[in-house]
Design a protein around this nucleic acid. Structure first.
Length: 544
RNA sequence: GCGCCCGUAGCUCAACCGGAUAGAGCAACUGCCUUCUAAGCAGUAGGUUACAGGUUCGAGUCCUGUCGGGCGUACCA
């Protein structure tokens, strides 16, 4: 519908002012229903270019539009120069019939048809279980991937990790220390070692497998490997509980082995952006407006994480993705401009990299902010959270708010959320419909009959139909802005429209034609709810 | 100190990249179950959009400054 209106308006403008360059026309759904079903502000934006007042322009457009299709019932100039449209009922009925025919696929779009997109997320190094802090990243990444798929894209979910650095060495030493303790050796955790109980669990497993044959320091790699495998296994299990499956795991080490790292340095050096000083190798970030240059290789010969980051992003583009999306926490906000600068300096199109920065989750426990640290074992794991509130509520909580806002996660509140939780509002709507469907099947036989949606004339029915028809636009909006909370907001409105319908209109007891039209209206409603919840990775139960 | 993000109802958050009367949920108050799930519906109350200027037909949204919070600002990841 939006597209149709845009076309009509553009055509009208061409007719009225042939020389005018047709601007981007935006169609909005007005906040207030009194302003119609759709509105545009083109007249306001064109006032200057046409040297005419907005209302007069709007009136001319309205008078000259071709509405012979019959889809628009009313065109109206209002306020300072908005043009408001009202949809005709037969258009609604036609569109609903179309949605009904499409069935489970309703809402899928082609905006990103043929595009290869990679979403990289979670990317936590295997040093401990995923915490609530990782949750927002994981759920955002997965949901954005899902909605991009609905918009037509071919999406790959990738997890980037590093199993070789200092972190991992300390982790291995920590496991070894616990192992030595377990076999009766009075060892101590290394400085800055990992204190979590899971370290002892891993040590215990190693002990069961190897007995006390690993006393010498040369066996450290065994502990490292055991820790990595155990923890990764754990992470995978947690992700899967949350309905997340990664397509690929990318080991940072690959970039050293295939020479990408050296190539990046060489290319940047060629561009005059790399130099040596104090034994270290520097990247001239001052050339891109930073007040300091950045170390790429430390004087110890060890690269900083920024170097592989650059190589990694180039690698993504070389793999042929039209778009590579990163899900980053606020702590990375200062580093990605360097990566983008370097990628561009190496001759790649950095517009193909898109970074979504989300603000941190503040955990509130017993009314107080709770500072987490993996190393000090001071954290709430995602598993613990899901044990308390379930995967659906966990996902919903992280998706409810815009990524850019600080999210306050009150554990006590989430735990006692129970039936007060907003996710149940959506699930309840779906379950309620299924319950009606069961009753309808017992009382009616609609086999082979086609619904006549023009019988839907009640206000509550019309509102529900309109909401349903917005779904494809919402998918595209959510996909292009990569903000899942917009979908949640929409589903809330849809559920509200349904609950209102439920309150005002009945099926059981109505004559066949009306009952059939309403039943199939609910079939489509349930489909949209299930599709929407599916994109959020949340279940749509048939019973509650 | 400098850079980025944020500040909207008592609380948690929206507001479709500058549009019409700033909206939901929770909490509070009032109604509605002999009829398809009351985990619901209808209603009341709640606001100087942190503050002060500026830009224009029009600002919660853009620019400047102030205040308050978060994150960076490492030869840590």
């Amino acid at each position: 519908m939006q597209e149709y209106l845009k076309q009509q308006i553009a055509r009208t403008l061409k007719k009225l002012a042939p020389d005018l360059e047709v601007p981007e026309i935006t169609i909005e759904k007005p906040r207030s229903p009194e302003h119609g079903d759709a509105a545009t502000n083109v007249a306001l934006t064109l006032a200057k270019a046409l040297k005419d007042n907005p209302r007069s322009i709007a009136q001319k457009i309205a008078d000259n539009m071709d509405l012979s299709s019959g889809y628009i019932r009313q065109v109206e100039v209002a306020g300072p120069g908005f043009i408001n449209f009202r949809f005709a009922d037969n258009w609604l009925a036609d569109q609903l019939a179309e949605a009904h025919k499409i069935g489970r696929e309703f809402g899928k779009g082609q905006m990103l048809e043929g595009k290869k997109i990679q979403v990289e997320f979670v990317s936590a190094n295997p040093t401990g279980p995923l915490t609530v802090g990782h949750g927002r990243n994981a759920v955002l990444g997965d949901t954005i991937a899902r909605v991009l798929e609905w918009a037509g894209a071919n999406v790959q979910r990738e997890y980037y990790f590093n199993n070789a650095g200092r972190q991992m060495r300390v982790l291995a030493e920590s496991v070894r220390a616990r192992y030595l303790q377990a076999v009766g050796d009075p060892a101590e955790l290394p400085e800055g070692g990992y204190e979590g109980a899971y370290i002892s669990d891993i040590a215990e497993k190693v002990k069961q497998q190897h007995g006390d044959s690993l006393l010498g320091e040369e066996h450290l790699p065994v502990f490292r490997k055991a820790a990595e495998e155990e923890i990764f296994e754990d992470i995978r299990r947690t992700l899967s509980r949350m309905n997340i499956t990664m397509d690929t795991f990318f080991n940072e080490n690959t970039l050293y082995e295939d020479g990408s790292i050296d190539k990046v340095i060489a290319t940047l050096r060629n561009e005059g952006l790399v130099y040596e000083e104090d034994g270290a190798t520097w990247f001239k970030t001052t050339a891109f407006g930073k007040d300091k240059d950045t170390v790429l290789i430390k004087s110890s010969g060890e690269p900083t994480y920024r170097l592989p980051d650059i190589a990694y992003h180039i690698n993504k583009l070389e793999r042929g993705f039209d778009l590579a999306i990163d899900i980053f926490g606020a702590d990375h906000i200062a580093t990605y401009p360097d990566v983008v600068s370097a990628v561009r300096a190496c001759g790649f199109d950095s517009d193909r990299i898109d970074v979504i920065v989300y603000q941190f989750v503040t955990i509130v426990k017993d009314g107080k902010p709770f500072k987490m640290s993996t190393r000090k074992a001071n954290f709430v794991t995602l598993d613990e959270l899901m044990d308390e509130v379930g995967a659906d509520v966990t996902r919903f909580f992280f998706l409810m708010r815009a990524p850019g806002t600080h999210l306050e996660f009150d554990l006590n509140e989430a735990k006692q959320a129970g039936e007060k939780n907003p996710v149940f509002y959506l699930q309840y709507a779906h379950a309620r419909i299924q319950s009606i469907m069961r009753k309808v099947r017992e009382n009616y036989d609609f086999s082979g009959k086609t619904p006549d949606f023009s019988l839907l004339t009640h206000d509550s029915e019309i509102t529900l139909v309109k909401r349903i028809l917005e779904f494809p636009d919402v998918i595209l909006l959510t996909a292009s802005q990569r903000e899942p909370h917009k979908l949640i907001q929409y589903l809330n409105e849809l559920a509200t429209a349904f609950h209102k319908f439920y309150h005002d209109c009945r099926i059981l007891g109505e004559d066949d034609p009306v009952a059939l039209a309403r039943t199939e209206l609910l079939t489509v409603t349930a489909t949209v709810l299930a599709n929407g919840l599916g994109i959020l990775g949340i279940s749509a139960p048939d019973k509650m």
